[in-house]
Each structure stands twice: as C-alpha cells, then as structure tokens.
Design a protein around this nucleic acid. Sequence first.
DNA 1: CGTGCACTTGATTGAAGTCAAGCGCTGTGG
DNA 2: CCACAGCGCTTGACTTCAATCAAGTGCACG
Lengths: 177, 177
Amino acid sequence: MSSLSDESRNAFFSAFKTWDVPKEHFLVKEEQVCNYIFFVAKGAVRIFYHKNEKEITEWIALDEEFLLSIQSFFQRSPSRLIIQTLEPSEIWGIYYDDLIRLATAHHDIETWFRKLPSAALILAQNRMDSIQFETAHQRYQNLLNQHPNIIKRVPLTYIASFLGITIETLSRMRAKQ
Amino acid sequence: MSSLSDESRNAFFSAFKTWDVPKEHFLVKEEQVCNYIFFVAKGAVRIFYHKNEKEITEWIALDEEFLLSIQSFFQRSPSRLIIQTLEPSEIWGIYYDDLIRLATAHHDIETWFRKLPSAALILAQNRMDSIQFETAHQRYQNLLNQHPNIIKRVPLTYIASFLGITIETLSRMRAKQ
DNA sequence: CGTGCACTTGATTGAAGTCAAGCGCTGTGG
DNA sequence: CCACAGCGCTTGACTTCAATCAAGTGCACG
C-alpha cells in the first residue's frame, strides 16, 4: 500500500464502497465467494473457519486494517473462511472487478495486487512458526506487545482461539501479567 | 498442471532445463533468489529453513514432484527457504523469465501460474491445522498413508523435523507401528 | 430477580520434550 | 584386516506445558 503513487492511491480509495454494519454481521459467509477486499475503517472484525465443529480465529482486524479471504478472492472460489464483525463497524470494500480494472490502469496497483498472495504466505508461515515453536505465554506476550488493542477490546474466546490455546490457559497467563 | 492443454503442456515441458546433481547439492541457498520452478524427475529433495539455529523441514519431494520457494520466486526476493537434494537426483527446472514468456503466450499457463501462490496458501493452512490440532501420532499416520515412500526412503531426522516432533518421539511412534 | 454468559481458579491428566545411555552399522586409519 | 569412532536409531526415566474437568464469581440483560 505504501508503495502506491498518490494518483493510484486516490483511485484506489475512490473505488471503495462503504457500509455501516451492526455487531455480528457477516461480511463473508461460509462457502460464499469473497468478492471484496475489506478495510475496517472503524470497529472490530474477525476472520475464522470451522474445524471439528469449533470456530478457529485466524485474525482479528481492528480500526484501519485490511482483511479478506485471499484464497477465495484470488481463486474466485467459495471461502472456507468466514468474516464477521465483533462490534458495530464502518467497513469499506473494493469489489473484485473494480480492483481488476484499477490494476489494469495502474501498474503499481497491479504489482501490489499480485504480491498479496505470496505476502500472505509469509504471514501464514510466521504464524505457523509461532504455533510450533513458541509457548502459549510467548505468543500471548507477542500479541500484547504488537497489538495491545486486540487484548483490550476483544472477548477472551476469540483471542484464545487465535492464539491456539484454551480460554483457561489464557486467563491464567493474564493473571501472571 | 492437469488443467493445461496438450499444446501448453508440451511448451511447458520443452522449456525445462535438466541437471544431474549429487547428494546434498543445493538447488537454492539461503538468501538466494529462487529463479526456477523445480521438478524432481528422480531422487529426493528437501526444502527447509533455519529457525533458532535448527533446520526445519518444510517439505520433502520425491520422484516426479514439483517444488520451489513460492515467496522468493514470485516476489523475486531472497529466499528464507533452502532447497537441497537428499539423494543423487535428476532435477528439471524452468527459469523464471522463460515461464513468464510461456504465460504470456499461453493463457492456460498464465492461469495456472497465477493460482500457485494462493494454492500454496491453502497447503500452508492445512499444514498449520495439522500441527495445531492433530497429535504427533496422527500426523505420522497421515504421512504414512499419503506418502509411504517418504517414510521408506528418508532419514528419521528430516521426517521428524517435517512432522514437527523430535526423533525420539518419532522413533517411539514407529515402534508402536 | 434470576438465568446465563464471560471469566477465574484449582486439581488432575496426558502428550511430547529433554536428558541419558546403549545398540548396531559403516567406513577409515593403523 | 581389525578396531574403534561416529552416525542413525532406539529405549528408559523424568519433566513440563497446556488440555480437560469441575466449581465458583460477578456482571448484564430480559
């Protein structure tokens, strides 16, 4: 995003649609195609999937963050991931076809766009590393350092699910700071 | 791959270069850019990265499998992943520029090519799921069912590292079938 | 006012890591 | 040609982290 020219950035942001949505509103339901790149202008949104009847939180986006199901958006296929607000939120979204149009017209947008899936792969890799090699306590501390607002604003269940631990364990970590 | 027309498939395979390489030969070293999509025609190759001075195996490719560092190849940036043969092997590779040329000429190759990063993301996601939610024993059983040849041909260290467990634990799993 | 949800706290269990010792090849050097 | 060093793997004893099960507290909302 930071790599875009002012002109491209303006074109990009002009293409957004905006919505005001209540708490627990679905931006993408299971098996739907994710047709938008979303930007959480204000509010809190989680992205999660079902695994053995449980909901696994993949990420929680607060104010001024992007999110989407990369796989669904890029492959134009039904999403395993579900996107849902945790608070009443102001959401912006850029529609797939509009983004393609922009990418065709602006080379820097195309470059940015093309890099998204492999950038997401790096994030997935990092998250896997942290689940595999860090203790629950380290993961909690990292989240606390890097995204203190998530800890402050979001219910335990979602944080625990994101960290890959039980709410009991998370509760105990907090008790010991 | 299966989605390519005969013509595209021929063009694709004609563009390969081939090498005979000894055991423990590096196809991609750390911090190098991965310029090829590799195809292991015959042999065994591992892809791994360094984490806290340890080598973490990400995948092991045997006869007739593709492998590459998606992130490095697509972003044209230095690779965190290292690719190295485990046996004397016959390796084919298609060079980045050649692949771009093919993708420009053959629309189905371009489609295939564009999908690679988000397809890899799904694999990464699945692997994370298995590390997070399956026991070491389940992961071993799955590997045994889905890739028995890896278990047969590859030294324990690499398999243990791929499964995310210690060699002791792996040895114990094998003892109980 | 009470039912339920979000969170806490405690006791117990279990899976897998660590440390340590030992076995059986293979290959190199005396 | 044998000896022994080293590697790949196994086995055992112990430890640890976090899950599970089970109560219990406090607040929120109908």
